[in-house]
Simulated assay, not measured.
Amino acid sequence: MSVTGETPQMSWRDWLLTDTPASRRHARAASFYKGWLRFRTNSLAMVGLGILVLLLLIAAFAPWLAPHDPIAQDLGKRLLPLGTPGHLLGTDSLGRDILSRLIFGARVTLYIVVLVALVAPIVGLLMGTIAGYAGGWTDTVLMRITDIFLAFPRLVLALAFVAALGAGIENAVLAISLTAWPPYARIARAETLTIRNSDYISAVRLQGARPMRIITRHIWPLCISSLIVRVTLDMAGIILAAAGLGFLGLGAQPPMPEWGAMISDGRRFILDHWWVATMPGLAIFVVSLGFNLLGDGLRDVLDPKAEK
């Protein structure tokens, strides 16, 4: 592969690992590749990445992977044990195939995770950077609002929002998002306070750049890496909060195959038919573990204070 400005014999790996990037795009590609090389050396992080890739594939191909309709009931086959022919993980109290419901439940989990990951960090980033850059009474007011949200346990506050908004998966996502943004605001504010008085920010300000442009073009990019790590590590908590709302009947509504609701349905049979509640519980455990392992790996790569 030949690259403009480089010798024709240089491979693409050598081009990415060169110490003298030819352009900004080249520098970004080289930084991404070097980060991937560091990430790849962390075996536990690769396990976490594998779990999440598997979750994505299961959710994408759920109609082809699920052996049965996840909401089809057959009372003649209720509470079948593990290993039953045609029902590998048994059936629940309504005769629905547990494996099929777990597979389709991966879609619900990803739906909640993606929506919360799109809403909460953006709100927190906006609040934190505005507070940190503006300072004064703006900082005081925004941070006191953040403190009010942080004063309540997340699940309790989410329960209050869902009770006010009504049960349902959309309202559950909104409630979790409203309770998840304060930590991101704190991180963004701390990053902004660190860099707002730096020389290059002063130079940009002297060139006539407006505060919003400085925040969006010069401060936000420096906060992204910390937020990515925090989002990844928070995904386990978000999944547990969604499962808790589903367990209490305030999240996804029947007959939607949501893992928390499946545990709630199986708790009545936990002594005699333990697999009904155990299987969705294991699914939540594995996915949460995957996000935590991935978050640890990303922290090692993206943290500028980490040892290289």
Results as ranks from 00 to 15, higher is better:
L125P: 02
A172S: 13
T194E: 15
R101W: 03
T216P: 06
L99T: 01
A134I: 09
V116L: 04
R213P: 05
Y133T: 00
S198T: 13
R189P: 05
G95I: 04
A131S: 13
A134Q: 10
G135V: 00
M212C: 12
I201M: 14
V173F: 09
A175G: 07
A134V: 12
G90P: 00
L99S: 01
T129I: 12
A106R: 02
R154T: 14
A209K: 12
G135N: 02
V123Y: 12
R189C: 10
I201A: 09
L159R: 04
L99Q: 04
G105W: 02
V116H: 02
L150Y: 06
T140D: 11
V113E: 06
I103S: 01
L115D: 02
M143S: 07
S177P: 01
M127R: 13
M212D: 10
L99P: 01
S93L: 15
V116D: 00
V119P: 06
L174G: 07
A175I: 07
L193M: 11
I201P: 09
S177T: 02
A164P: 11
I112A: 13
G124K: 04
D139C: 04
I187D: 06
R154N: 14
R101H: 02
A160P: 07
T138N: 08
A106G: 11
F104Q: 04
G86C: 01
D92H: 03
I214A: 06
V204D: 05
T194M: 15
R210V: 10
P81C: 01
L82Y: 05
G86S: 00
P182L: 08
L115M: 14
R186S: 10
L88E: 03
I169H: 11
T146V: 11
P153Q: 02
H87Q: 00
L142V: 09
V113A: 14
G83L: 06
